[in-house]
Design a protein around this nucleic acid. Sequence first.
DNA 1: CCGCGGGCCTGAGAGC
DNA 2: TGCTCTCAGGCCCGCG
Length: 293
Amino acid sequence: MPELPEVETVRRGLQPAMEGSRITRLELRRKDLRFPFQPDFAGRLQGRVITSLGRRAKYLLADLDSGDVLLMHLGMSGSFRVVSDENNVMPGAFHHPRSDERAHDHVVFHMSSGPSVIYNDPRRFGFMRIFARSEIDQEPFLKDIGPEPLGNAFDAALLASATAGKKTSLKAALLDQRVVAGLGNIYVCEALFRSHLSPRRLAATLATKKGEPTDHSRRLVIAIHEVLNQAIKAGGSSLRDHRQTDGELGYFQHSFQVYDREGEPCQTDGCSGIVKRFVQNGRSTFWCPKCQR
DNA sequence: CCGCGGGCCTGAGAGC
DNA sequence: TGCTCTCAGGCCCGCG
């Protein structure tokens, strides 16, 4: 499912049920997701209060009153939903999972605030792991992650320095979580389109020989800000399975201008191009060869 | 440092 | 209907 806007949508949806609330019981319905759960996984969570629920890149981080942090990643198909009791969804939500969907409900957080929080993940590329808070920044999952694209530090100069000298394409550089955090295939395609930059362009061209940011770098930063902020406002993108935690669909997929729009006309004013698809680093790239240079 | 292929899993959709 | 094939929002590894 999830890139930054979807994970941020999940975080906001889980906050009311989880933040400041105690995990009264943790139900593990299997012994692993992508990785086996740690031996004392449930024991370290049960009875603990979640003091805050944060996000870094595509990771959720639940801070516990024990000094531990629960790190969670949704992989490709992970989702959370908040339910008011064992068997049903919150009042007003229209999404009632079919029984075969519930087969992939792998983890249930029973919260002292009332509702339960259920983690569902058909493909099980997601994972959860507990770390000591004092060590979390140095854990391999997080230590090399680049700047948050919506954070104050991320600007044209930072992007230029992060890509300076890179012999790879702009597309591959933006997918590299060490360059900038949280972007995935959809939002990279969309940001490149909105900045009229070719996904094939050499990443190093965002900086001058002196290392100064180019106008391209400025345009790209603006486009990244725009597309992420709009997507968060829309509750993320729902392609196959992403829903908000109350079961509502995100709707940013209706605002895609190139992603999954092969053969459709380019939406840039005055451009008569057609959206094309090709494979780059093993992933589909969608773009308009006419107005992206 | 870089691209590529394969792997981890299940499910949806297309084509026959 | 049902089979087979391809593809999918992420990420890691080893190879050349």
